[in-house]
Amino acid sequence: MDSLWSVIWSTDFAFSILRVTTPILFAALGALISNRAGIINIGLEGIMLVAALTGVVTSAYTHSAWVGLLCAVLSGVMIAGILAFFTLQFKTHIILGGIAINMFASGGTVFFLYLLSGDKGASSSLQSKVLPNVDIPLLKDVPVLGPILSGHNVLTYASIAAVFAVYYMMKRTPLGLRIRSVGENPHAAQSVGVSVVRTQYTALLLSGLLAGLGGAYMSMGYLSLFTRDMTAGRGWIAIAAESMGRSTTVGTTLTSFLFGAANALANALTVLKIPSELIATFPYAATVIGLLVYAIGESRKRKKAAVKPNEG
């Protein structure tokens, strides 16, 4: 058991939690914004994948990681825009639209990768750029905290900043208020002059932007290349994190970190004498426990609502 503690109580482990959580957190915040506006964006996985490829390709051709990042984010917004166009303009069912985006991304990224690099599996023949890691002055010299919090990829810090930005936007800005009102009662919102479609458009584009950042992190920060289906379900985990966090910014952030920590723990435990099959169940066990907590909370809420029927 000694070695278990030495694995968990190490700065490397704490550092890895932040690193693992970043893409999940970005996508979960994206899910949150669209969900609060009343449309479930299940195309996050696909959006991340497209953004990951776009970032790699554009950074390789422009020799600039920042241009790559910008294009990756724009591509995320664009795909979300296409999704919004079909679901809001033509009333395609949002779930069908999301599935289409995911399938298009899975096959389409390989197709474009093949067109551009002659390769169907990985972008290792492209000289793509990587976004820098940032050492925070002063903080980096603090024992324990320094090695944990300093030296992360710039997008990891951006994901933390995004948490505050989303929190502020949802709570304190007119846009946040419109998004929440449209999500809770579109007819009421419309009756006071809020354009439901325009608000949902904005929400979907913002969720595309955040998922785009998550995708860019995958291929330009976390890793230095694009590979086929490299997001490997992180967009779906984000949707789970968002719903477990009950669509609140704080809850979503906490559950994202819970998933990140469970994954990091599973990774760290492989060096110990624990059967690999058992370790592989860790993230799922964490999900089950999380859902249990969620279910208990929900049923309590329902009981409360039952006691005070007038407010329901």
Binding site: S16, Y222, L223, M230, N267, A268, T270
Partner: peptide, 14 residues
């Protein structure tokens, strides 16, 4: 066989 990020994490631990 298709999650390079996981591969990187596990390698870093090693």
């Amino acid at each position: 066989f298709s999650d390079p990020a996981k591969g990187k994490e596990l390698s870093l631990v090693e």
